[in-house]
Design a protein around this nucleic acid. Sequence first.
DNA 1: GTACATTGATTAACGCCGTTATTCGCCCCA
DNA 2: TGGGGCGAATAACGGCGTTAATCAATGTAC
Lengths: 206, 206
Amino acid sequence: MSEEEEKGLRRAILDTARQLLTTVGYARLSMRNIAKEIGYSATSIYLHFESKDDLVHALIDEGVDVLHESLSRANASFSTPEHRLEAMCRAYVAFGLERPEYYEIMYVLHPEYIKRYPVEKYRKARRNLEIMADAVRDGMESGVFRSVEPMLAANLAWTQLHGVVTLLSSERVDKRIAPDDLIDAACRHVVSSICTWKDPSSVLPS
Amino acid sequence: MSEEEEKGLRRAILDTARQLLTTVGYARLSMRNIAKEIGYSATSIYLHFESKDDLVHALIDEGVDVLHESLSRANASFSTPEHRLEAMCRAYVAFGLERPEYYEIMYVLHPEYIKRYPVEKYRKARRNLEIMADAVRDGMESGVFRSVEPMLAANLAWTQLHGVVTLLSSERVDKRIAPDDLIDAACRHVVSSICTWKDPSSVLPS
DNA sequence: GTACATTGATTAACGCCGTTATTCGCCCCA
DNA sequence: TGGGGCGAATAACGGCGTTAATCAATGTAC
């Protein structure tokens, strides 16, 4: 019971923090706010996390898993490399726009605001790029993709998708641009740019 | 003299804030820090700016101009639309990486951290996208670019370049990826994706 | 059964932050 | 000589992350 309640409190802290991230954003996520929400004093959180950064790192861990789950599912839903790659692109953007609480702390927060993500955990985070690089590699071997350095191609895709997610969710894109058009263009763009058959007219609509 | 010193103090505040942004980042940019640097009390800043947001907005104004200057110069340095577009892409990335103090407040800072940039100033900021859209339009009319919606194409380019800048400068890109390779790939990628002649082998190295 | 140690939790405090209200000192002009 | 206006400073408010000290309850050893 004591042990279970300990874990329960830790979970309550994480859940409350995640919920506060969605409602008020990282800018107003504070130890005191979390504490008020769960009915404890702020210092009690330090019995379970050694700092605010530590708490956020735990949430990043969760986010990495959620994204990996989503990418894996997309990857498994199609058989051809080009379809797998495009599905993962769409899954990535969907994750970024639908789980902004995770996306912000994973990929947006400036390193100045938060201690560096522990090195040993980078491995897990990198798998989310490698699963895309794998699709590129498969496509190359089966001849539908041109010969490229898979990790470079994956990173190029990542930067494209990351740009779409961040500029859309920070509402910096002109409202006269339909978000879905931009997302469609970006995803097809990523795939078609490394395809041998390349149908240029499908890259950008209109 | 009184008038000049007033403007002088305002400039000193802006310059000090900009310098602090480069050295310690927005996370540690505070009214009290700026004040200490210029030898005034923190509240004196409020005689020239009505809030911290207002001060940062003034800096954003400057950044928009600096970027526009850089894009215009790049645009004027080449005659063909494809070269103009690529030059502007490289200028954009260079601006993002070399002037992180401007880039952070212009394009990275979450809207939660800062009041929205005043609507009437968006026009000026949008010109930095329109100058790219113009190159796309020119290329279409002269036949080297495929038929696309110019503003959508410009936004797609923007998201690609923004992704490169932010992921590189937040050091989230694996160190085994050479930054210049990624930048090269992104810039060529943007241009070649809308070119009719398209030489796929030049899009990605190796 | 009593003294001690452990442990979950709290309060108080430190030094930051943006911002506001108030006050001070000084120059100009009637 | 006396205000009026104005640049600037101090004090203060409520918020922040974090640490130190304390408290109360629970076991545990003798």
